[in-house]
Computed example of a mutant assay.
Amino acid sequence: MRFFKLLSRVSVACAFAAVGTISLAEESGKVEYMENCATCHGESGLGDGPLAELMTVPVPGLTDLSAKNDGVFPMLEVIHTVDGRQGTRGHGYPMPVWGSRFKASVEEMGPYGAEVVVRGRILSLVYYLESIQQ
């Protein structure tokens, strides 16, 4: 038990050190976005990615999330939608459940370390989405 507490604290410290500032989080979030989201949502976030026309539901733009929420970026809702593990289907099917996909890529870190990495990746991605609001 003591080992897991230590591992958890070290993982959190590493995550904060890796992200550092919101600006760095936005930069790493942009990389996440371009690698995992742009094929459907488009490089500019307008819902016009190269795979959008192949989807069975319209792919939403992501630059007007604040505008649709009275000028306030809906941070928690976006985090839940991107993570997807709690069952939110914020914009239709079939968006990948990125929380599960990210976690599968770092399972060797154990349940606590992997979860810290997953949450960090999602938070960075959402900070980036917040930065592209119009």
Results as ranks from 00 to 15, higher is better:
residue 4 F to N: 14
residue 4 F to I: 09
residue 4 F to R: 14
residue 6 L to S: 12
residue 7 L to T: 08
residue 8 S to W: 06
residue 8 S to Y: 12
residue 9 R to Q: 14
residue 9 R to L: 09
residue 10 V to H: 04
residue 10 V to D: 04
residue 10 V to S: 10
residue 13 A to D: 13
residue 16 F to L: 11
residue 16 F to N: 13
residue 16 F to H: 08
residue 17 A to I: 13
residue 19 V to Q: 11
residue 22 I to P: 06
residue 23 S to L: 04
residue 25 A to T: 05
residue 25 A to S: 15
residue 25 A to N: 03
residue 26 E to G: 05
residue 27 E to H: 10
residue 27 E to T: 13
residue 31 V to W: 02
residue 32 E to T: 05
residue 32 E to W: 00
residue 33 Y to W: 11
residue 34 M to R: 09
residue 34 M to V: 12
residue 35 E to A: 14
residue 35 E to N: 15
residue 36 N to F: 12
residue 37 C to V: 07
residue 37 C to M: 08
residue 40 C to H: 08
residue 41 H to S: 08
residue 42 G to Q: 05
residue 42 G to M: 06
residue 44 S to G: 03
residue 44 S to F: 04
residue 48 D to V: 01
residue 48 D to F: 00
residue 50 P to Y: 11
residue 50 P to T: 08
residue 50 P to F: 08
residue 53 E to N: 11
residue 53 E to W: 12
residue 58 P to W: 07
residue 60 P to H: 05
residue 60 P to T: 05
residue 61 G to A: 15
residue 61 G to C: 01
residue 62 L to F: 13
residue 63 T to C: 12
residue 65 L to C: 05
residue 66 S to W: 03
residue 66 S to K: 15
residue 66 S to V: 02
residue 66 S to E: 09
residue 69 N to A: 06
residue 71 G to E: 06
residue 72 V to A: 13
residue 72 V to Q: 14
residue 74 P to F: 03
residue 77 E to D: 08
residue 78 V to F: 11
residue 81 T to Q: 12
residue 81 T to P: 00
residue 81 T to A: 15
residue 82 V to K: 02
residue 83 D to H: 06
residue 83 D to S: 02
residue 84 G to P: 07
residue 86 Q to E: 15
residue 87 G to Y: 09
residue 88 T to E: 13
residue 88 T to C: 00
residue 90 G to N: 08
residue 90 G to A: 13
residue 92 G to E: 03
residue 92 G to W: 10
residue 98 W to H: 02
residue 98 W to P: 00
residue 98 W to S: 01
residue 99 G to V: 07
residue 104 A to L: 09
residue 105 S to V: 01
residue 107 E to L: 14
residue 107 E to W: 04
residue 107 E to I: 10
residue 108 E to V: 15
residue 110 G to K: 12
residue 110 G to T: 10
residue 112 Y to I: 11
residue 113 G to P: 03
residue 113 G to V: 10
residue 115 E to C: 04
residue 116 V to G: 00
residue 116 V to R: 01
residue 116 V to W: 01
residue 116 V to T: 13
residue 116 V to N: 02
residue 116 V to E: 05
residue 117 V to Q: 07
residue 118 V to L: 02
residue 119 R to G: 05
residue 120 G to P: 04
residue 121 R to L: 04
residue 121 R to Y: 00
residue 122 I to H: 01
residue 123 L to Y: 06
residue 123 L to N: 10
residue 127 Y to V: 06
residue 127 Y to C: 12
residue 127 Y to W: 13
residue 128 Y to V: 12
